[in-house]
């Protein structure tokens, strides 16, 4: 079990960096940008679990990737006209 941790960590961290780069890429549309920042949080919560922090993993999954992404989409739906400005 323990020797699987290192490859999993490398994989998770690589996908987190890719998702992070995508979330600041100004040519992508805003929904994709928001979804990738939510993806960064979701992968981070799995990484917290590997780092033996289940409390933090639960908080990040419920709050960081759930509520924050929803708040973004809520505001995006309200200011739709400014999304491309």
């Amino acid at each position: 079990m323990s020797n699987l941790f290192i490859p999993m960590t490398v994989l998770l961290c690589a996908s987190m960096i890719v998702a992070g780069l995508m979330s600041i890429w100004s040519k992508r549309s805003l929904p994709i940008v928001m979804l990738s920042s939510g993806l960064v949080s979701l992968l981070a919560s799995v990484q917290y679990l590997l780092l033996a922090a289940p409390d933090v993993a639960m908080t990040e999954a419920a709050i960081g990737s759930g509520l924050t992404t929803f708040l973004f989409f809520f505001v995006l739906s309200r200011v739709r006209g400014g999304a491309n400005g």
Binding site: D55, I63, L67, F70
Partner: peptide, 17 residues
């Protein structure tokens, strides 16, 4: 167990959502 007020509160709020 892992969890607590903050996580539970966020889950309650997601029901509202």
């Amino acid at each position: 167990t892992p969890g607590g007020g903050f996580q539970g509160g966020a889950i309650l709020a997601s029901a509202m959502l």
